[in-house]
Design a protein around this nucleic acid. Structure first.
Length: 112
DNA sequence: TAAGTGACGGAGG
DNA sequence: GCCTCCGCCACTT
């Protein structure tokens, strides 16, 4: 996989603010790779743990944790999110409430 | 080279 | 909300 694209994907994920989530497709778009959501999943898979990426803030477009429910990684993701104040019901999260919205985020960040 | 695979997405039922 | 089907694309076999 092309190192350049990986870097962009990782950067984008690293920008997700605490207490918010983003979808695979959203990350792909923001990273300049529209329609390549699957690539984002792969990028996460090969990301070195030492990078300390907020991988747990990435979920699928259905607002669900994209890991087998009950598995160890699933539990880890769920726990991390909840520790940031995100409400997780089963595998589902309300995108309506917690999805990261860059435009709005930047607007609010610029307010006095 | 063809076929299979996946931490996906969107439309339809 | 859940499931199925298809499109998608970079790898692996």
């Amino acid at each position: 996989m092309d190192k350049e694209k990986l870097a962009r994907i990782w950067q984008t994920i690293a920008a997700i603010p605490e207490g918010r989530v983003a979808t695979y497709g959203q990350i792909a778009d923001l990273a300049g790779l529209p329609g390549r959501a699957r690539l984002v999943g792969k990028a996460l898979g090969v990301a070195p743990k030492t990078m300390n990426l907020p991988w747990f803030r990435v979920i699928n477009s259905q607002g669900k944790i994209s890991l087998p429910e009950g598995s160890e990684p699933f539990t880890a993701q769920r726990t991390q999110l909840m520790s940031e104040g995100v409400v997780v019901k089963g595998a589902r999260i309300s995108l309506k409430v917690y999805q990261w919205q860059p435009e709005l985020y930047e607007m609010l960040a610029k307010l006095p």
